[in-house]
């Protein structure tokens, strides 16, 4: 199934170089792939995986190992950030 992975701020470095200009990469992943499985696949340091959104909706840390992605989902991840 096709999903989109978006990585921002310092996590941009974990994207393929050609994807860094857009902060996103289209992926073809097996059905039932969970958020944590995708995080592991991209070797994102746990300390930098802070704000996790699927289609803009927040996914709390306790749900990330269980929540499977669906066709067309957009997974976006940020390290600890803030602003004002």
């Amino acid at each position: 199934m096709k999903v989109t992975l978006k990585l921002y701020a310092t996590l941009s470095d974990y994207l393929p170089e050609e994807a860094r200009k857009t902060n996103q990469v289209p992926l073809d992943v097996p059905p039932q792939t969970t958020i944590d499985q995708l995080i592991d696949q991209y070797r994102l340091p746990p300390g930098l995986v802070h704000l996790v959104l699927v289609n803009g909706h927040y996914v709390p840390p306790g749900m990330r190992a269980r929540q499977a992605l669906h066709e067309g989902d957009v997974l976006a991840i940020w390290p600890p950030i803030a602003g004002g």
Binding site: A9, H50, A82, G83
Partner: peptide, 15 residues
Amino acid sequence: PVTGQGLPTYGTQVL
């Protein structure tokens, strides 16, 4: 991590 790394690196514009 926010005040030590996030804000100095990207500023508020990271939002």
